[in-house]
Amino acid sequence: MLPFEIDFFEDKISSGGKMGEAKRRKATDANYGKIPKIRPKRGLIVSPPIEIEGTTLHAKSSNLDPQELRFGLLFWDELVWPSSRAIYFGSGPDEQFLESTGILTRPDYTYNGDVAQGILRGQIQAFQDREQAEPGSWALSQGENSLLLKGGLIQENQGALLELHRAIPVPTRDVPLAEILEFKRRRADELLLLRTHLDSFVGEIQRAEDKPAALEKLIEEIDSACSDLLKVGKEWQFPVYLSNLKASFSLSPTKFLPAVMGGWKLAEPYGLTAASAVATASGLASTIEVKGDFGFRSVKRPVSPYRYAFHAHEELR
């Protein structure tokens, strides 16, 4: 468990009968005491939109997808894009800007032999190197607009997928990166809270004696965190998409959740009431579901997510 923030304000009652600052915050702020006092760095291994199947590599672009890049920048502190001398993808203006800030780095991972497998090996090795140095702090970005892997290292039903449907705001591809960095500075608590709940999802359920109660509590916390993010998303001065977020764990769901538990069924969406109330413009409910997912044969990590993906739906108005 992460150590949590303790408010050391002195609890005094004023002559007007008002509560002390700590009591006032506890009574009015649903997230009071939930934000980790120690804010661990989180990193993401990123890739241009490339598809790898065996020895075949298909690249849609030589740059990072602008939408994926903004998604990664919003939720992670450090981005790593492995480079290779065998097939070099150059940095564009967005990537160069983030390199100048130190947020994005491009370490060399060149391997002899097949180019497609060399690029894949570079992605996996970059992840493993950083995960070994900072356990539980790193993840891979994967999906149609980043790295899409077919066959090879994939093992079906060796992982669990937690998916939030239409529950998070993500800046559109045209939003200046500097604007996102400023938003992160101002809204660090809301962003960190959602990531903290996702990171601890499996571990909290595994440790709980009453697993149905733990699951219900975690869903409520994720719902609240998504609602808070959607609220501030509506306040942004730039366009924002209502999006899905997928977090993959290297543990089969049957290892920590029975097939049916407290009315919960795997692969069945359940409503996020608070988030749905904020995202009313979409006309569709925000939901959460847990289902089986593939895992990597060569990737072993703690119970925090090792792989993330997102899908933008429509503009959040």
Rank of each mutant, 00 (worst) to 15 (best):
M1D: 02
L2Q: 12
F4T: 06
E5W: 11
E10K: 10
K12P: 00
M19I: 00
G20E: 02
E21K: 11
T28A: 08
A30V: 04
Y32W: 12
G33W: 10
G33N: 13
I38F: 08
G43Y: 03
L44E: 03
S47A: 12
P49R: 07
A59N: 06
D65Q: 03
F75S: 00
W76C: 08
D77T: 05
V80P: 01
F89V: 06
P93I: 08
F97R: 14
L98C: 07
I103Y: 06
R106F: 08
P107C: 14
D108G: 11
N112A: 14
R121Q: 15
Q125G: 03
Q128I: 14
R130H: 07
E131K: 10
E134P: 02
P135Y: 05
L140E: 09
G143W: 02
L147F: 12
L153M: 06
E156R: 11
N157H: 13
N157F: 09
A160E: 01
L161F: 03
A167S: 09
A167H: 03
D174P: 01
P176D: 01
L177I: 04
L177T: 01
L181A: 14
E190Y: 06
L191I: 14
L191Y: 04
L193W: 13
R195E: 05
H197V: 03
F201Y: 14
V202L: 02
E204T: 15
A208G: 07
A208M: 06
D210S: 13
P212M: 10
P212T: 10
P212S: 10
A214S: 15
L215V: 10
E220P: 00
D228K: 14
D228C: 08
L229H: 08
L229Y: 10
K231Y: 07
V232A: 10
E235I: 06
W236T: 15
F238A: 14
L251E: 08
S252K: 09
T254P: 01
F256V: 02
P258G: 09
A267P: 04
E268D: 12
L272D: 13
V278M: 12
A285M: 14
S286Q: 13
K291F: 09
G292F: 06
G292W: 03
D293I: 00
R297F: 09
V299A: 05
K300R: 15
S304M: 04
A309Y: 02
L316H: 05
R317K: 08
